[in-house]
Design a protein around this nucleic acid. Structure first.
Lengths: 116, 116
DNA sequence: ACCTATTTGTCCGTATGTATG
DNA sequence: CCATACATACGGACAAATAGG
């Protein structure tokens, strides 16, 4: 998986991992539908605790980059959708902007009513 | 703090706590600027681990309801979301359900057009 | 329909770090 | 400098959902 971790850096380890994976996802290096290593495996490879990987994975899930499911693992999320869906999304974003709702808060709002 | 926890319920304990506090914040029972109990204190009162409270607090932070700072504690920052926003969110979720768009995929859509 | 292995989810406990006041 | 209080990481245990035989 080739992730470099710097324990001396100010950034948290789980965040370093999440950022590194997010970069690979947004560039397409990690393709949609692709499965990430299991938390245990990646933890062993990187020499960190499994919980640290899970923390990173859950951060990516909250950003909408991956989907997490028990027994299945972490899968890179694909987008797409109809024009109507995109319109609805645009409407939500417009209103959130008006009300100065932070992106993270909006995502949390949706995740709450539409959990995995 | 008067939060009832049901260990038998399907909902996670941290989520029960977060939901209970969120309700008190949105109704104004917990006013903006007010300070929540420290994680240790609330943990002791409720008979759960401190990490469980911190998890709940961090969830509230992600929803934009409170602000967390080391050495200072948890302070209520405000209630999020008008009725219109919630309606818009509900509409998006309904459409995503119809089109069988996975939650993570929906989040990715929003995140793309409304980044931090 | 049953059982088993897999894999994330949650909770507990402990330890240490770090910003705040 | 010191006490406070959240932040992160480790480790262990069990639960719950998934997939496959």
């Amino acid at each position: 998986m080739l992730i470099r971790i710097d324990l001396q850096a100010g950034e948290a380890v789980y965040d370093q991992i999440a950022t590194a994976l997010a970069a690979r996802i947004t560039t397409g290096e990690l393709a949609v539908g692709e499965r990430l290593p299991t938390a245990r495996d990646l933890a062993e490879v990187l020499g960190v605790n499994m919980h640290t990987i899970l923390h990173a994975y859950q951060s990516l899930r909250d950003q909408g980059l991956i989907e997490l499911r028990r027994g299945r693992g972490a899968v890179v999320t694909g987008a797409t959708g109809s024009v109507q869906l995109h319109d609805a999304v645009a409407a939500v974003i417009a209103r959130a902007r008006e009300e100065r709702i932070a992106p993270a808060a909006l995502l949390a709002l949706i995740r709450k009513d539409y959990p995995g």
